[in-house]
Design a binder for these strands. Structure first.
Lengths: 260, 260
DNA sequence: AAGTGGTCTAGACCACTCT
DNA sequence: GAGTGGTCTAGACCACTTG
């Protein structure tokens, strides 16, 4: 049997169809092209967050490749946390909405216990993006932007002061009401209401001294050392869609990380 | 063809040989058992850091399984950073010694540029482990322990003050001379001289104020906010073998992290 | 040319979930 | 029992490295 038999479907993939780019990578295996197609469909919203995608057999038939090739593409997407496999049930679009207990991107851990976090919305304004934010979000300075500020509490005490900046065009109907009425992580709301999936983020962490404003919100003396966590979140196609700056009081919590 | 044909070798794996444990996992696939055997051999030092392991064909024959099963075991070990695959050459034992440019576990990044770090050894003493260190390293309080302190410089300015604690029995011949003469990351020395491979680590990060001692070493005013990074490193079998506490001056550097 | 890892296929059977 | 993902095998061929 030839390794790459003729395709049988309009969706079918041509071997090396992505390899003809001059100066590009010299070789792109079939399963990576399948992976690309699946990402395109996820991006287009063909399957919603939390829904099942078609079975491997069906995808294999649709793309005109063997099940093993689809499997390898899906394996990578599952490793990237874009999909979640559940044996006997199917493969599902990953979502931040139903993550049990913990917020997927929040690395804050209490020294003891595991109380859940309470949220308090401070404000939500529409503004024009300053240059430094626009640059990180790949917008133009002055473009419309949403700014949200909030507090996270643990056992009654404020622990995190967050500032969140979002591109105005992607989050058109975002209001204080929607944010405050919503249960669970913001990222769940973003998926359901705006079709924006956060799939990856980069954080820059520093130690800073609390200024007057943050000190009063976090109920600590001015000058208290705080963890500054600047997070840039990306959606499909490595497009940055959220900038966040959190100030963490690490008196009774720490930022947990795992190195491999 | 049966999915699990008879084994042909003394090394051969019995299907589900690990599944008979009462109360244990109900099923352990072949490739995971192979993975376990490979880890055992790595741990025993059968192949040294940086060396090639036998080819997949040879391992398949040795274990009495198909090449595809060995491949899946090796895939996971490569994903865990225990092995490194190099197409056309072979599969190699991962090492910290030859990592180009960057220290694998060091997430510190300069705001601009990418100068290399200079090292300055402060001291290296053998002591008895205090209770809190002993507990983390799974030793008994009072057991012999090596304590190292050092500074990392970037462009002439001190940036990191590190305290490192190691179990005395594993690092018998460790001296100031060895440490100061050695080039490259400590972890390279630990592999070559003591056969200790760091394969994974957990970090707890906080913001703290510089005390008198750390302030003078890092040449900052007392009370300056610093990043406190407590790292517990593990070798094969999730055995903790190093505790480290770093104080990072984040005036011109940040701790980088990636979330998935 | 030989040897290594990398891709792709095809088919059989196992484990898990739901009806 | 039917459908899904998970494991295992066997063989062919491709891409890369080295002699």
């Amino acid at each position: 049997m030839p390794a790459q038999p003729p395709a049988i479907d309009e969706d079918a993939v041509r071997p090396d169809s992505a390899a003809s780019t001059v100066g590009g990578p010299s070789f792109s295996p079939l399963y990576r092209q399948i992976k690309g197609l699946l990402i395109t469909r996820l991006q287009a919203g063909e399957w919603k967050a939390g829904e099942a995608i078609p079975s491997e057999q069906e995808l294999a038939a649709r793309f005109g490749v063997s099940q093993g090739t689809v499997r390898k593409a899906v394996d990578e997407l599952a490793a990237d946390n874009l999909l979640v496999r559940r044996q006997g049930k199917g493969t599902f679009v990953a979502t931040h909405a139903e993550e049990k207990i913990q917020y997927r991107f929040l690395r804050l851990t209490p020294d003891k216990g595991a109380e859940s976090l309470g949220r308090q919305l401070l404000d939500c304004k529409r503004q024009r993006a300053p240059a430094w934010i626009a640059k990180l979000l790949q917008m133009r300075a002055g473009d419309p932007m949403v700014e949200v500020r909030r507090l996270l509490h643990s056992g009654g005490a404020p622990v995190v002061l967050d500032e969140i900046w979002l591109p105005g065009d992607l989050f058109k109907g975002l209001t204080v009401e929607k944010l405050s009425q919503h249960r669970g992580p913001f990222y769940g709301l973003f998926e359901a209401e705006f079709g924006v999936h956060m799939i990856r983020a980069e954080e820059k962490i520093r130690a800073v001294a609390a200024d007057a404003d943050s000190a009063s919100h976090l109920q600590v003396p001015e000058g208290t050392p705080l963890l500054s966590v600047e997070r840039l979140s990306f959606t499909y196609g490595d497009k940055p869609v959220e900038l966040r700056r959190g100030l963490y009081n690490t008196a009774n919590h720490f930022y947990r990380n795992e190195l491999n």
